[in-house]
């Protein structure tokens, strides 16, 4: 049981985040109204996505140095879960945009860039499906994964900072941190980061266990 304390922590933190996230008194920021509560669910999704993609690329690099198929299982599972969280982050973002920007799909650069980033990783998953030989699939997809991650950084970090965006925290739009004077949002937001990240790692370990069972004849 001692090894599972972090799973209990994830559940407790997420329960707190969900209950407090919908009930805590938040400052009304501009036209956001109550929609600022989306912050507790939107931002952690991106943190989960980046955690998973980082796990994925590290394992791809390790695969190319040792050619150990277990690394490929770890890399592909992490990429799949990262994409899942990316889609969730995109969905929560568009939901918020519907009520504040007045459109579900706008031509805002941040929205476009994240959509492309998710498409890149979907291409990675499609590439994996198209190759049947296990070793070849592992090698080629590891190479593509490194390529994709290298292009993900300019796409989600550099380009959105160069152009004007309506997204909070961009050049002309202030973030929420400056308006949250009594810190009630931070009190929920930081536990949310930890809770959701732990949940994503938990899902990751489960998927890896399942995938390893599927391939147990190979791993022995």
């Amino acid at each position: 049981m001692a090894r599972h304390w972090w799973k209990a922590l994830a559940i407790l933190l997420l329960l707190y985040v969900i209950i407090a996230g919908f009930t805590v008194k938040i400052p009304i920021i501009g036209t956001n109204g109550q929609s600022s509560r989306g912050l507790f669910f939107h931002v952690p999704m991106w943190i989960c996505m980046y955690t998973m993609y980082t796990i994925s690329i590290v394992n791809s690099l390790l695969y190319l140095s040792k050619y150990d198929l277990k690394r490929d299982v770890l890399a592909s599972s992490a990429a799949g879960i990262g994409t899942f969280f990316g889609v969730l982050g995109f969905a929560t973002g568009t939901l918020w945009a519907t009520y504040t920007w007045g459109g579900t799909l706008t031509d805002d650069p941040k929205q476009m860039c994240t959509a492309i980033a998710i498409l890149i990783y979907m291409a990675y998953l499609v590439l994996r499906m198209s190759i049947h030989d296990l070793d070849k699939r592992a090698r080629i997809s590891a190479v593509f994964n490194i390529f994709a991650f290298a292009l993900l950084i300019p796409l989600t970090y550099i380009i959105p900072r160069m152009v004007d965006s309506l997204h909070p925290g961009s050049a002309t739009t202030p973030g929420f941190a400056s308006k949250d004077t009594d810190g009630s949002m931070k009190l929920v937001l930081y536990p949310a980061f930890i809770g959701w990240t732990l949940l994503s790692v938990w899902i990751f370990t489960l998927v890896v266990r399942y995938r390893k069972l599927q391939l147990k004849n190979i791993f022995k």
Partner: peptide, 13 residues
């Protein structure tokens, strides 16, 4: 076809 699937998202930026 795979090249188009892989390439278009990467070339978009």
């Amino acid at each position: 076809a795979l090249m188009a699937v892989m390439g278009f998202p990467l070339i978009m930026p």
